[in-house]
């Protein structure tokens, strides 16, 4: 990708009171690409988003969008749309007035503003809600209005900060698919922050993994999922991490085989077990104190208190 396209973040650092909460972060986004940024709580995901949007002072490094260095560009002139976990709508205004906000501050003429409002409303199926005050909307409706309003301003980059975290699970699945479809059709670059690994792997064309302020892995969702680069990434993706000799290995809970304890590589006691979704889950404690999670689909779950042997069907070697 040439530097004149999409978003480019090079060696970015953000410091709070002299302590670097982001350090050496480098990545790029192609136009129209949807990338998810994942990591545990406190890893610096939201700080990275806010630094790109211009709300966090950058200690070092460079952020450029479509070839333009953003260092001296104020947040309102960056062309970057930001959506929060809690949708923030203008109080005491209708949906239409909210949608019109971006085009209006860009000083577009009234007919163009109206056209943008109608277009955004149509994309997010908000036609029936246009005259409704923002206070009278449900959580899902508010989030859809917030996205429509962002799109009506025609940003070159959309930053989503866990926009589905506050909606209930049923609606979350629906909104995820809807947002992905709309954003891809829009052709805008999207950086989507989430600490929900399933959401991140499902939505992203690529995923970035942040841990303690550093970018530790990037790649296509399946590549990253199947080959976690560090123990931290493996744990975040739900793997069991165990020591095998002088090496660390990662084993996914669905790849753990339960055996008789005698002669097994790992011997463990079942601490808790029970049904989960269409299968079961068991939590075990190995003799060396390591915790294991095992997931199965067939047969009954192991009995609590039982001693079992464990073997990883597929093991990922982690760097030392």
């Amino acid at each position: 990708m040439s530097s004149s396209e999409g978003l480019e973040v090079v060696d970015l650092a953000v410091a709070w009171n002299g302590v670097r909460v982001l350090d050496g972060v480098t990545f790029s986004l192609r136009p129209g690409e949807l990338v998810t940024l994942m990591g545990p709580n406190g890893s610096g995901k939201t700080t990275l988003l806010r630094a790109i949007a211009g709300f966090e002072p950058v200690a070092a490094g460079r952020v450029s969008l479509e070839g333009r260095d953003l260092a001296r560009v104020p947040p309102h002139a960056r062309g970057v749309g930001l959506l929060f976990q809690e949708p923030v709508l203008l109080p005491r205004r209708t949906v239409a007035e909210n949608l019109a906000f971006g085009p209006e501050v860009q000083r577009l003429d009234a007919t163009l503003v109206a056209a943008r409002v109608a277009e955004a409303a149509e994309r997010l199926h908000l036609g029936d809600l246009l005259d409704r005050p923002s206070e009278a909307l449900s959580g899902g409706e508010r989030q859809r209005v917030a996205l429509a309003r962002t799109l009506a301003a025609r940003p070159r980059l959309v930053l989503l900060d866990e926009p589905f975290a506050a909606v209930d699970p049923e609606l979350r699945a629906e909104l995820r698919s809807e947002f992905r479809r709309i954003l891809l059709r829009e052709g805008v670059s999207v950086l989507h922050v989430t600490h929900d690994r399933e959401e991140g792997l499902f939505l992203g064309d690529r995923v970035l993994l942040l841990d303690r302020g550093r970018l530790v892995q990037a790649g296509r969702p399946r590549e990253v999922f199947e080959n976690p680069a560090t123990a931290g990434v493996a744990r975040f993706l739900g793997y069991n991490v165990a020591r095998e000799g002088d090496r660390l290995v990662a084993v996914h809970p669905t790849e753990v085989e339960l055996l008789a304890p005698e002669g097994a590589e790992v011997e463990a006691t079942v601490v808790a077990s029970g049904p989960v979704g269409d299968g079961w889950a068991a939590f075990l404690e190995a003799r060396d104190g390591a915790r294991w999670e095992v997931r199965g689909r067939s047969g009954p779950p192991p009995v609590e208190g039982a001693r079992v042997g464990l073997r990883g069907r597929r093991r990922v070697l982690l760097p030392r």
Binding site: F55, P75, H76, L82, L83, F84, E86, Q106
Partner: peptide
């Protein structure tokens, strides 16, 4: 005042005066 509201309006293109008003 709501910090997310201020930041949202800013990313929608509102300048300092408009952000102050809203």
């Amino acid at each position: 005042a709501s910090a997310p509201l201020e930041e949202t309006l800013t990313t929608l293109g509102a300048g300092p005066l408009r952000v102050y008003r809203e």
